[in-house]
Design a protein around this nucleic acid. Structure first.
Lengths: 358, 358
DNA sequence: TTGTACGCGTTATCAC
DNA sequence: GTGATAACGCGTACAA
């Protein structure tokens, strides 16, 4: 079912069919009609490989995701979903590459096999060997997140440092003097995970600026990790009255551990942070947080990549998102000492919970 | 950087390079070494489009996912992750196609543009137009989930009907006489979503067989939906003492609503169901459930597809998963009437919670 | 409009 | 065992 077949049945030359389809040369209406009719009949569509070979582009972009290892987090998934949707809207296909290192076979195939016109990378490390590999290959790419020194590369990111700083500001304004940062897992931090490090820096800057005391805790990215982490905070920093968290997967555990310790949010303890909208709303009570605009970020990443592909020599484009912090119900003014539960201790069994304030 | 370049630098013929790479003709060790050296130096890899054009296969599979619409659920995400990983292990690339209907442009590109050697579809409906479209195209495909009449197609699925039946059995054995099924959303059911319908059938069969009373509730796939649904169950079927749920996204809401109504799981109310391992473990208390083996299912889907591609005429392969129900802590014997909370009512404000049983 | 060279890797053919 | 040559797959775009 190739273009020659169409040409034969329509009684024209192969090139005429091609021009009729592309419109790059005028074709008489009558001829075009005959050709279109045959095409519809046979449901013909040009062979993508032949076209890619000739045109030198594949109309495909690669999306490098972390190897599923433990599992993809819902935020990562949101990015995947939004990138795929945005790409589909402009008729680009998305090839997935689960690559953790710079020599993963699937990444090599994408790049040196010229399977894609461009690449989007996510879950970026401060020094990222995958980014280095793609950069070296010369294939246009955009990162969701950014490396330590990102000026020369195309990226879209969220301003973790500033947003964490704003959370600290918000809590300091409410009178909190002892704030803890619940950051991402030790393994991720050790790998140089970029949002974690920028959150760390922003936190340090903000607590210094506001003159409050702050301690950082690296927390496994799951519910159990959140429980352990809060227990540790309450045990080692008992004066803490508020948490800033960038670890959304730990949120249910954070909530559970605080409840178990007898805390009532926000009356006796405040929590703010950065999280996907969904997680913020499912927190109990709804979490005061900067909602990760994953949909917009994925969309913009595709737009930037399309620009970059169209003009490889254009100066690198960037887009730093700074979503507002949505005030929900998880932050309040610092508790008077008497309002703190008398019996709280990380291991204390749950006894009761007071009625909700009216 | 084409094969001619390699040949020139290695001082051999183009065909010799090709043969050295494919092994389809013996090449002396010395020549092979020289060629390999040049290849390593230049990091050469054959152009995927040219190869695909010549060989008639792309070494790529398509994965049709539902349009991200509201959002992909974590179970869907697990399937995507496991399929991509499994494919990468056998050096297959995965092209994502967010397609809800049978004429989505991206699905058409995959199929008639011959971009893929085979297709995996997920979130299958009883009558699925995407499946029909792919079947008609002649491209090999495997479904995760299955259509109403699946004998002729390749699929991997979980036995929702039997597993829901087992949950009912388990609850009936514990003495429960009034059981509710928390099914997927009304919209999904109306669309003919296959797991939902098989769950419905299995439930109806099991309650009849066991002579218990059962009612089905279709529940939105989110936390708020779970809360509303449980409220409705408690209001309209107050004799209900146990729930079977196949709606994992609603689980946190189910838990919250039961707590709010004064129930203590499993002492005064039992919950069992089907859910991803993660969700089951995060339920409070951990949920007695059949864990969706998404990793195994994705892997087997890729294996079946590879088989199907290798031998298009082989009889259709199937694999029905029937994971055991993991007994955790959310089911118990039916409460004596006195053990039921005196004040429970769906809208009752939370007052207190009794201490955990020791 | 038509004829045809081209993009690039694979493979068959024939010769050394 | 290896080299050289050419045909092939299929759409594109230039020259005629």
């Amino acid at each position: 079912m190739d273009i020659g077949e169409i040409a034969r049945r329509a009684g024209v030359a192969r090139s005429t069919v091609s021009y009729a389809l592309s419109g790059k040369r005028p074709v008489s209406v009558e001829t075009r009609r005959r050709i279109q009719q045959v095409i519809d009949e046979l449901d013909y569509r040009p062979n993508a490989s032949a076209r890619a070979l000739k045109e030198g582009r594949t109309r495909t972009v690669g999306l490098v995701i972390p190897p599923a290892g433990p599992r993809l987090t819902s935020m990562q998934l949101d990015f995947v979903g939004s990138v795929v949707e945005a790409a589909a809207r402009v008729d680009l296909d998305v090839l997935l590459s689960p690559s953790g290192g710079d020599r993963d076979r699937s990444l090599e195939r994408l790049i040196s096999g010229r399977r894609v016109d461009g690449v989007i990378l996510m879950e970026i490390l401060m020094e990222d060997s995958r980014v280095a590999r793609v950069a070296q290959s010369g294939v246009p790419f955009v990162t969701i997140g950014r490396v330590r020194d990102p000026d020369a590369t195309w990226w879209v990111d969220m301003d973790y440092a500033a947003l964490v700083g704003r959370c600290v500001d918000h809590l300091a304004d409410l009178g909190h003097r002892h704030v803890a940062l619940v950051n991402r897992s030790p393994a991720l931090m050790a790998a140089g995970y970029s949002p974690g490090h920028r959150a760390r820096d922003g936190f340090a800057e903000a607590v210094a600026r506001r003159g409050v005391s702050g301690s950082e805790f690296c927390c496994e990215d799951d519910v159990a990790g959140g429980e352990r982490c809060v227990a540790e905070i309450l045990a080692t920093r008992p004066s803490t009255t508020a948490i800033v968290t960038v670890n959304e997967a730990a949120l249910p555990g954070v909530q559970r551990a605080l409840e178990r310790a007898g805390h009532e949010i926000p009356r006796t303890f405040s929590v703010a942070g950065i999280a996907a909208h969904q997680w913020a709303e499912e927190f109990h009570p709804p979490l005061t947080a900067a909602d990760v605009p994953s949909l917009a970020m994925g969309t913009v990443a595709v737009e930037l990549l399309a620009e970059h592909i169209a003009d490889p020599d254009a100066p690198a484009g960037h887009r730093l998102f700074m979503p507002p912090i949505s005030l929900r119900d998880s932050t309040g003014s610092v508790p008077r000492p008497s309002a703190r539960p008398a019996f709280f201790s990380p291991a204390a069994p749950r006894r009761f919970r007071e009625a909700d304030a009216d």
